[in-house]
């Protein structure tokens, strides 16, 4: 019994290792298959999955804003990204930005991308 148990364990660990090696080998192919790499300016073999899938971190596309006066959910010492453009001033608390990384926003008619 003990002997066969050890055998089983050995096989499983070998299978796991094989799976891991396969995954490492196949992952770049999967990435290359889902994006257009026919043109590029960087070695695409160095493009790696960062963990979350495409849009796993959801970029914001219709962000809502509130006036600064009376805001209570942000403390004065907290970090924000501040922007003043076309006469409009906006602040983006970085702890909110971290959950979305990108905000597709507008300053009057100018479309902008806030990236964090």
């Amino acid at each position: 019994m003990r002997y066969s148990g050890a055998m089983k364990k050995k096989t499983t660990s070998r299978q796991n290792r094989l799976l891991l090696v396969l995954l490492i080998a196949v992952l770049p192919l999967l990435i290359a298959a889902s994006w257009d790499f026919s043109k590029s300016s960087i070695p695409t073999s160095e493009i790696m999955g960062g963990g979350p899938p495409r849009d796993g971190i959801p970029a914001l596309t219709s962000p809502k804003f509130v006036p600064a006066a009376g805001v209570r959910f942000v403390r004065d010492e907290e970090q924000v990204l501040g922007v003043i453009l076309n006469g409009v001033a906006k602040a983006y608390p970085t702890r909110i930005l971290s959950w979305h990384e990108l905000v597709n926003d507008y300053y009057l008619d100018l479309p902008v991308l806030v990236s964090w």
Binding site: P63, K64, F65, V66, P67, A68, A69, V71, V74, R75, D76, E77, E78, Q79, V80, L81, G82, V83, I84, L85, V88, A89, K90, A91, Y92, P93, T94, I96, L97, V103, V112, V114
Partner: peptide, 22 residues
């Protein structure tokens, strides 16, 4: 486009009319 990393306290004093991301 220009942006700056600052604190909410400094920013709202400079721009009391500012909006903030909800």
């Amino acid at each position: 486009l220009p942006s700056r990393l600052t604190t909410w306290g400094k920013w709202r004093k400079l721009h009391p009319e500012s909006l903030i991301l909800s």
